[in-house]
């Protein structure tokens, strides 16, 4: 079966006074229908920029799509006109971004904004349209939906606004829901409700989800597949359990090891990744993580590693010249 989303060789750059920023570098991956892909990365990893580029939302200039294709359901989004893309966005692809206050229009009621999406992408009118709007707010757990439709965004709390954003993202039963740090600004209790809600939507509608976050806990709770990005590239990717259990990238390993777990509490010390994320106007020549990687070899510093199969788990891939599990086993031997 063909994947629902297939990104091929996507390269995005920005022109800045500092020079060309290499934000996304030959990025290729695909998402199967019904799959939930969790993308993890920090600033400069390319996780948000590649989504904007794919959806035709990248400000150009300064942004520039150098190459690449993004096949969604058999159509290349990169070949679409603005008009065609607008029909896909909010329709077959729903989007939820981090900041609901700046994504919602403050001078229009929530109902009006929900109606706009439904009118554009569906045939609903009159009472059916209104019924669908109320139903959507109910699905995302907003109390008194009928009264809430006539209110403005500032009358909603942060959590409730984010639910409105998700209602808008889900309004037309999208085949793909893209969420970029959608729960980062929320309290953990509200975040938990939103994650439960997304799980419910997956179950009820078979929605494919692309969830971008920096939180390993959120990925563990929600995703089937994890994709770790750094320096505009994929460092590691695979089914969540094997990747969490046996990371093959030193970056994934560092992210997991630096979490404040029981071991860290016992030692009263967090494992830390030294150094800073790379300046993508002047990116490292080889593996982008090499300058911060204690396991890096000479080759890592000079040559970009390709994404290769790890071997034992289907779909588990890593971009690394070194064999991390072997190196960690050696370390353990020495420690004994």
């Amino acid at each position: 079966m063909a994947p629902l989303l297939d990104i091929r060789n996507l390269t995005v750059e920005f022109d800045t006074p500092e020079g060309t920023v290499h934000a996304v570098n030959s990025l290729s991956y695909s998402v199967e229908a019904g799959e939930t892909l969790g993308i993890v990365g920090e600033s400069g990893s390319g996780k948000s920029v590649h989504i904007l580029a794919m959806m035709g939302l990248l400000p150009m200039p300064p942004g520039r799509i150098v190459s690449g294709e993004a096949w969604f359901d058999g159509q290349n989004l990169m070949d679409m006109s603005d008009r065609e893309l607008r029909a896909v966005r909010g329709g077959q692809i729903g989007m939820v971004f981090q900041d609901p206050m700046s994504s919602l229009n403050p001078v229009l009621t929530v109902g009006r904004q929900l109606r706009e999406v439904l009118v554009r992408h569906t045939d609903l009118t009159g009472t059916k349209l209104r019924a669908r709007m109320i139903e959507l707010l109910e699905i995302v757990g907003i109390p008194h939906p009928e009264a809430r439709l006539d209110q403005y965004p500032h009358e909603f709390s942060g959590g409730m606004r984010q639910r409105v954003m998700i209602a808008i993202g889900m309004a037309c039963n999208p085949r793909l829901l893209v969420a970029d740090e959608a729960t980062t600004a929320l309290d953990v209790t509200v975040q938990a409700q939103i994650l439960d809600l997304v799980r419910q939507l997956k179950q009820d509608f078979g929605t494919t989800v692309l969830w971008i976050t920096h939180d390993m806990g959120v990925v563990a709770e929600l995703a089937d597949t994890i994709q770790v990005m750094y320096g505009g590239r994929i460092m590691e990717r695979g089914p969540v359990s094997p990747v969490f259990r046996t990371p093959h990238s030193a970056y994934t390993h560092g992210l997991l090891k630096s979490l404040p777990d029981e071991g860290a509490r016992a030692q009263r010390r967090l494992y830390q990744i030294n150094g800073s994320p790379p300046n993508m106007a002047n990116p490292p020549k080889g593996d982008p993580f090499a300058p911060r990687n204690p396991y890096a070899t000479e080759r890592c510093l000079n040559e970009v590693p390709p994404l290769r199969d790890v071997g034992d788990v289907p779909g588990h891939k890593v971009a690394a010249w070194y064999d991390l599990p072997a190196l960690l086993a050696q370390e353990n031997e020495v420690a004994k």
Partner: peptide, 19 residues
Amino acid sequence: QSLLAAIPVPDPDRKHRPR
């Protein structure tokens, strides 16, 4: 209790904890 039950746990094998 509600707050502690809502903390996302970075362990895919423990994803279905009750809220």
